[in-house]
Simulated scan of single mutants.
Amino acid sequence: MATFDRRAFLRTSGLAGLALGLAACGDNGTTTTTSSSGGGGGFGSVKLQLSWKKNVEFAGEYFADTNGYFKAAGFSQVELLSGGGSGTSVESGLATGRCWAGLSAPTITAPAVLQGAPLKIVGATFQKNPFAIISLSKNPIEKAADLVGKKIGVQDSNELVWNALLKANGIDAAQVTRVPFQSDPSMLTSGQLDGYVGFVTSGPVNLRMKGHDPAYLLLADAGLPLVAETFTVTQETIDNERDKLKAFLTAEIKGWKDAVANPAKAAELAATVYGKDQNLDVKEQTEEAKMQNELVVTDDAKANGLFTMTPELIEQNISSLSKAGLTIKAEQLFDLSILNEIYQADPSLKLS
């Protein structure tokens, strides 16, 4: 798994007005998937930009490829463009036509939209953002109020989301000692920190594998709900390629249903096939897959289908963005009508 600072940076750099350049998705590391047409759709080839390097975070995409769902949906080719490094952002890639769809986050897409980019979020893989306050069970931070009087590691790239968390909970920054942090968990285990801002999908797993007993508080459960790994496309795609987008999202739903059902296989695909050049540990990836399933499968996702967002969740995201200094209307950023049509046409796609 990538270090917290880079991953977090890609999720929040848009807050600093850098959305068009820093959610890196490099030109290298593409995976060409289905190579022959099928399914009768005739949709040809598309490129999907991932938000990060190829690890288990994109298990649903791997299953959609491996199990032939993209092919069955009518795509002759799907390229998974690996993120990371210093490359073109999803938002910039969409604006220039370099990619047809991308996986991003509201904190990155919203600034681009506010700068005039005609983009929309049409679904959210992670119903809850992975950002969390990571601590140890012997000194747990279980609620936002527990932050008061504590020493918390916060990277510079996470400053705005950190400030938004404090604002959401009415905590004065002077009540918490913020410590410079560069993703080194030993600062926590040695007692230099009481907690740090990190990713719940990797931080607790890494600590547990090193013999520690971690605790965590999701920012989504502490007054700052935000989705993540959001499917982002241009308004033109929604207007002129709606059937193609439906076919693509249908294949993605099938892939993620498989990923949720089989974390071990998801880890195997990540470590030995799609991310085989990333030196991933299958055991660690399996545990991370289990952790991320908790972010993907919520009660609402069970009731309404993967990737869907209730009106309440949408409004919560808009409110969270406002706390981070981004004032945007729901209709400017989200369009969940495509997913609604997909599930209305085929309710069997919902989780059983």
Score class of each variant (00 low, 15 high):
Thr3Gln: 00
Asp5Ser: 07
Phe9Gly: 04
Arg11Tyr: 01
Ala16Ile: 02
Leu18Pro: 03
Ala19Tyr: 01
Leu20Glu: 12
Ala24Ile: 02
Cys25Asn: 03
Gly26Phe: 00
Thr30Leu: 01
Thr31Tyr: 09
Thr33Asn: 01
Thr33Ala: 07
Ser35Asn: 07
Ser35Arg: 03
Gly40Asp: 12
Gly42Ile: 02
Ser51Arg: 03
Trp52Asn: 03
Glu57Cys: 00
Phe58Ser: 02
Ala59Glu: 08
Gly68Glu: 06
Gly68Leu: 11
Ala73Trp: 15
Ala73Cys: 13
Gly74Cys: 11
Phe75Ala: 12
Gly85Phe: 13
Ser89Arg: 04
Glu91Ser: 11
Glu91Arg: 06
Glu91Thr: 02
Glu91Gly: 08
Ser92Lys: 11
Arg98Trp: 06
Thr107Phe: 09
Ala110His: 11
Pro111Ile: 15
Ala112Cys: 08
Val113Ile: 15
Leu114Trp: 14
Pro118Tyr: 12
Val122Lys: 12
Ala124Pro: 07
Lys128Ser: 01
Ile134Asn: 06
Ser137Thr: 03
Pro140Gly: 05
Ala144Val: 08
Ala144Cys: 13
Asp146Leu: 09
Asp156Glu: 04
Ser157Arg: 10
Asn158Arg: 08
Glu159Ala: 10
Leu160Gly: 09
Val161Lys: 01
Asn163Trp: 12
Ala164Ser: 13
Ala164Glu: 12
Lys167Ser: 13
Ala174Trp: 10
Thr177Pro: 07
Phe181Ser: 05
Gln182Glu: 01
Met187Val: 09
Asp194Asn: 14
Tyr196Trp: 08
Pro204Asn: 02
Val205Asn: 00
Leu207Trp: 07
Leu217Asp: 03
Asp221Gln: 09
Pro225Met: 00
Leu226Met: 08
Val227Asn: 00
Ala228Tyr: 08
Val233Pro: 04
Glu236Ala: 15
Thr237His: 14
Glu241Pro: 05
Phe248Asp: 10
Glu252Tyr: 14
Glu252Met: 15
Trp256Ser: 11
Asp258Leu: 14
Ala259Ile: 05
Glu268Arg: 06
Val273Cys: 02
Gly275Met: 07
Asp277Tyr: 04
Asn279Lys: 10
Gln285Ser: 07
Glu288Pro: 06
Val296Trp: 01
Leu306Met: 08
Thr310Tyr: 03
Asn317Arg: 06
Ser320Tyr: 13
Ser320Asn: 12
Ala324Arg: 14
Gly325Val: 08
Gly325Ala: 04
Glu331Asp: 15
Gln332Ala: 05
Leu336Ser: 14
Ser337Pro: 10
Ile338Ala: 10
Leu339His: 11
Asp346Cys: 08
Asp346Ile: 02
Leu349His: 00
Leu349Tyr: 02
Leu351Thr: 08
